[in-house]
Design a binder for these strands. Structure first.
Lengths: 111, 111
DNA sequence: TGATTAATTAACTACATGGTTTATTAAGGG
DNA sequence: CCCTTAATAAACCATGTAGTTAATTAATCA
């Protein structure tokens, strides 16, 4: 799998609000599938599929504990996303500078 | 549109390699649709659709200049993504600490 | 062993996505 | 005015996504 493929899978996994919510809950600690499914207005198999998508994107790991499948967050792909955004940081910071200048001009005019 | 909806659209737009490549090229400066399409092994309408997806996600703006439609990068949604990842930074940094400790232990054993 | 619990698989439906080719709109240039 | 260029729209196709319900697997517990 190329780096591009993994970015595809990660961005695509993050594109669904239910999956981002699952990640947010896993940030609090390891949890089972049923516990993760509980707050959703959605069938258990549907949640199971979302979890599978997250697993395939490398965003979570699943172990076996009796009949339970405790899920654990793997933050590495999120870090990859954060790294990817860094290439664009100079651009949005430049924009911020323009805003700053604009605000300065407004201040000058009002004085 | 809720914040969740815009995150959905942005992550989903970023999930395709052609669209990330278009953004990377726009980071170098404003360009027309045909110029953006040139490097792709894909029809012009296909590229036009990708550009539409990026526009709908707010990642680019399009102006009109005669028959040209110069596209400009809007970095704000990328900043939103970067902000989103920050919630998880403590987790991957904690992991890094664990790695550091592990490396220290290995060093201890080898001495 | 039989019942219960956790989770996945299977089969299906509706709709979205990514691509094609052909046709169309709209502007500029000789 | 016609021709060319830039770009989009229309119609279509194949595949993927997100959900459902019903069935199945696999482990625990009484």
């Amino acid at each position: 799998m190329t780096q591009d493929d993994t970015l595809d899978a990660v961005f695509s996994a993050l594109a669904h609000p239910a999956r981002r919510e699952i990640l947010a809950r896993l940030a609090q600690g390891t949890t089972t599938v049923n516990a993760l499914a509980e707050p959703f207005d959605m069938s258990l198999p549907a949640v199971s599929k979302h979890i599978r998508v997250l697993e395939n994107a490398g965003l979570i790991k699943r172990e076996k504990d009796a009949q339970f499948r405790p899920c654990t967050l793997n933050p590495k792909p999120i870090q990859d996303i954060a790294d990817w955004t860094e290439k664009y940081r100079p651009i949005w910071e430049a924009r911020f500078d323009v805003m700053g200048k604009l605000l300065d001009e407004m201040k000058d005019q009002s004085s």
